[in-house]
Design a protein around this nucleic acid. Structure first.
Length: 424
RNA sequence: GGAGAGAUGGGUGAGUGGCUGAAACCACCGGUUUGCUAAACCGACGUACGGGUCAUUCUGUACCGGGGGUUCGAAUCCCCCUCUCUCCGCCA
C-alpha cells in the first residue's frame, strides 16, 4: 500500500511510474486526491466542533462544582447542535476515509527505476546466466519418472491421503528434503540471518499485513472454524513479527530466516506445468527476510541475490538470474530478481527463487517503522524477502540433471547432510 | 469442552465520571558529579491525522484490546465481540 501523503504530494509521479507496470492509475489517483482534500476539510471542521465541545464540557464541570446549576444547564443546552454536527462530520469522515483506503489498496507498488520495460515474461532481463546445460543420456527421464523408479516420491499415495499436489516423500527422498532444509538454513545463518521457526497458521491481521488479504484470499487455505490461514510462505509470519513495531535505526538491517512448509491452493492451475514437483499445494521452503533502512535497501537486495546465487552454485545447478520487467512483476514489488534453474529432462527453466525489495509498500501496511536517528521521528521502513530456496523444483532439477545409469548423484555439498552419495 | 479472572504508554502497574494523554517504578535517551565501571541527582521520554511555519518551535483532534451505547463530559458506567491468563478435563 502506498502512503497516502506520498500519493497526495506526488500524483503525477505515481501515475507515470505505474505505466511501466501497465497500470493506469490516473483515475484512482485523482479520486484519492479529491477525497483527501474533502477529508481534510471535514477533519478541520470536526476538530473545531470537538474543541468547542470540550471547552463547554469543562465549563459545565466547573459551574456544577461551584453550584451554579442554572448556568450549567444553559451551557449543556448549547451542546445539542454541536453534538449533531460532530456526529454527522464523523460519519462523513469515516466514510471518506474508508473510500480512500479502498482505492489506496488498489494501487500497485511503484517499480524501481531499475525495472526493465516490458509486458510479458519474455521481456524479463537476463542479468546473468551460469553453468553448463547438461546433456543427458538417450533414455533419460523426467523427475516424476525418476521419483517412481527409485521410489523416493509417491504422488499417488499423496492423492489417496490428501489430494493432488501433496506428494509423499519416502526414504532417500525424505532424507534429501531434510538435507536441503538444513543446508539452506545453515547457509542463511552463515550469512547473518537469525533462524526463526514460525507458526504455520496466521490470523487475519497477519494476512492483511503482508498483503495476502483481502486481494489473494483464494490463494490461501482457510480454516474457517478458527478463522486461521495456512501460510503460503514463511514471509507472512516472519514479516508480521514486526507488524506495529517501531525499531531503532541502529538495529537495521534485521535479517531473519525461516524454514516452513508452504500451502497454496493454486486455484486455476492445470496442465503440463503442474506435473510432478513443478507446482504443489504443499511444499517446503527456506525464506530470508530483511527489514531495512531505506537508504541501503537496494544494497541489501543485491546481497540477498548474491546469497541465493551462492546456494544454486553450490548445488551445481545451471541457473540464470532475471530482473523482472514491469509487466511481469508482482503487485507489491518494487524490484524483483527471479532465479531459474535448468531442468534438463523437462528441458525448461524452473523458477526456484524470487527476491524482492518491497520498499515501504508492505511496511506501510504493517505499520513497521524505524526511529530516525536525527529527527527521532518514526519512518516507514523497507522490507525485502526472497526464497533461499524453495525445495520442489530444486529437487526436480537435481534429480533430472544428475541422473546416471548408476543412479542419481548427490551434489558434494549435500552429501554430509544426506548421508549418502547416490540415489539408487 | 467446563469454570473463573483480565486486557492501560517500551515493560511492570496505579487509576470507578471532569483538575488523567494518563501516577509511580523500571528501561531507553540527554546532562551533572565521579580514576573506569557502577551508583546518585537533574531533565526529556507515545502514536496518528489536521492547522500554522523555510525550519526549530507552536497548535487542534483522536486513541487506555475492538465496536456500539449512556452523559454536557467516559480509561472509568452499560451492551456486544475478540484475545490472553488461571484452574479442571483431554492430550503430543
Amino acid at each position: 500500500m502506498l502512503n497516502l501523503k506520498f500519493i497526495q504530494e506526488n500524483p503525477e509521479l505515481v501515475i507515470t511510474k505505474l505505466k511501466k507496470k501497465y497500470f493506469d492509475a490516473s483515475e484512482i489517483v485523482s479520486q484519492i486526491t479529491g477525497l483527501s482534500v474533502r477529508k481534510n476539510e471535514i477533519q478541520a471542521t470536526a476538530d473545531q466542533c470537538k474543541s468547542e465541545m470540550n471547552k463547554i464540557s469543562k465549563e459545565v464541570g466547573l459551574l456544577i462544582r461551584e453550584g451554579k446549576t442554572e448556568q450549567a444547564n444553559a451551557a449543556k443546552n448549547r451542546t445539542a447542535i454541536l453534538k449533531d454536527s460532530i456526529r454527522q462530520l464523523d460519519e462523513d469522515f469515516d466514510r471518506i476515509d474508508q473510500e480512500i483506503f479502498n482505492l489506496q489498496v488498489l494501487i500497485p507498488n511503484l517499480p524501481s527505476d531499475l525495472v526493465p520495460e516490458g509486458r510479458t515474461p519474455e521481456d524479463n532481463l537476463v542479468v546473468k546466466s551460469y553453468g553448463e546445460i547438461p546433456v543427458l543420456p538417450e533414455n533419460s527421464l523426467p523427475h516424476w519418472e525418476l521419483a517412481k523408479k527409485y521410489d523416493i516420491i509417491d504422488f499417488e499415495l499423496g492423492v489417496k491421503i490428501t489430494g493432488a499436489g501433496f506428494p509423499v516423500y519416502k526414504g532417500k527422498g525424505a532424507r534429501i528434503q531434510r538435507a536441503l532444509i538444513s543446508f539452506f538454513l545453515d547457509e542463511a545463518r552463515a550469512s547473518g540471518y537469525l533462524e526463526i521457526q514460525p507458526p504455520l497458521m496466521v490470523n487475519e491481521d497477519s494476512g492483511f499485513g503482508t498483503g495476502q488479504l483481502p486481494d489473494k484470499e483464494g490463494q490461501m487455505y482457510h480454516a474457517t472454524e478458527d478463522n486461521l490461514y495456512l501460510i503460503p510462505t514463511a514471509e507472512v509470519p516472519v514479516t508480521n513479527l514486526y507488524r506495529d513495531v517501531i525499531v531503532e535505526a541502529k538495529d537495521l538491517p534485521i535479517k531473519n530466516t525461516a524454514y516452513s512448509a508452504c500451502f497454496r491452493r493454486e486455484a486455476g492451475s492445470y496442465g503440463k506445468d503442474v506435473r510432478g514437483l513443478n507446482r504443489l499445494h504443499q511444499f517446503d521452503k527456506v525464506e530470508i527476510v530483511q527489514i531495512a533502512h531505506p537508504d541501503n535497501s537496494y544494497e541489501l537486495l543485491d546481497q540477498m541475490v548474491a546469497h541465493v546465487e551462492g546456494l544454486v552454485k553450490k548445488l551445481e545447478l545451471p541457473y540464470r538470474i532475471l530482473r523482472l520487467c514491469g509487466g511481469d512483476m508482482s503487485f507489491t514489488s518494487a524490484l524483483t530478481y527471479d532465479f531459474e534453474v535448468f531442468s534438463a529432462a523437462q528441458e525448461k527453466w524452473l523458477e526456484v527463487s524470487s527476491v524482492s525489495n518491497f520498499e515501504s509498500f508492505q511496511a506501510n501496511r504493517l505499520k513497521l517503522r524505524y526511529r530516525d536517528e536525527a529527527t527521532k521521528k518514526p519512518v516507514i521502513a523497507h522490507t525485502l524477502n526472497g526464497s533461499a530456496l524453495a525445495l520442489p523444483r530444486i529437487l526436480a532439477a537435481l534429480l533430472e540433471n544428475n541422473q546416471t545409469p548408476d543412479g542419481i548423484r548427490i551434489p558434494k555439498v549435500l552429501v554430509p547432510y544426506c548421508g549418502f552419495e547416490m540415489i539408487d
